[in-house]
Design a protein around this nucleic acid. Structure first.
Lengths: 110, 110
DNA sequence: GTGATTGTCAAGCGAATACTTAACTATTCA
DNA sequence: TGAATAGTTAAGTATTCGCTTGACAATCAC
């Protein structure tokens, strides 16, 4: 099993590529097949399959094959991992700024 | 000037690298110099400088040189761009799921 | 069955990436 | 002044990455 911590890299590495971000954006509008995904991106179906493997491993996408068509959908897990990392980062940063603000507004105490 | 739209790639590309994420995490705890940043990462100062250039361009980090030491701090701009992208993505996805839920719960209408 | 569609897999290629080393500049301090 | 400190820059290298091509498998439609 892959811990959430270990998967942070998978998620951000996935989102670091513009083609994969475009795939996720498309998927946010609804499920779609591999070849329909490939067409507007103007890359081969093989390339899309490779991106899907990366996205699926990182929990951003889920796919299911019925007959000869594989349907791809967004998956919440990966997105959550990224959101959590950014929230943790921001809160660490902001609480530090708050403490700094307190110090500056009460300079008379030692 | 760099539009927020164009900068999305800069931000996610920056965060796609584990060393740069570690730098941002460190910076969330407070400002720090280049060499102090390099030490725990066990890479050369030169490598850190290269990462800082990437991070600064994407608006995740701000640096300022005083005397011979360059102090690095977190910057809100880049983080905001990433948060915005993820919020847009999630809301597109969730409103779609909501509409789908409405359809399923009211199947008697045509 | 035949032929068309949809996807899979492996190999290979060129470009980008993350580093290092080494030479250099600028600043501080004794 | 001279030595130590902090960072910068350029060049080189090994690895990873995103993609293509081409051969193949499975499914569908006639």
């Amino acid at each position: 099993m892959l811990s959430q911590q270990e998967n942070i890299h998978g998620v951000f590495h996935s989102l670091g590529d513009p083609t994969r971000r475009a795939i996720v954006e498309q998927l946010s509008k609804g499920p779609i097949s591999v070849s329909r995904l490939a067409f507007p991106l103007e890359i081969t179906v093989a390339a899309v399959v490779q991106h899907l493997q990366v996205l699926e491993k990182s929990g951003l996408v889920r796919t299911e094959k019925v007959g000869r068509v594989r349907t791809c959908r967004m998956e919440s897990g990966g997105l959550l991992v990224a959101e959590q990392w950014m929230n943790d980062l921001r809160s660490a940063w902001e609480t530090r700024l708050d403490r700094l603000g307190d110090l500056l507004s009460e300079p008379e105490e030692k």
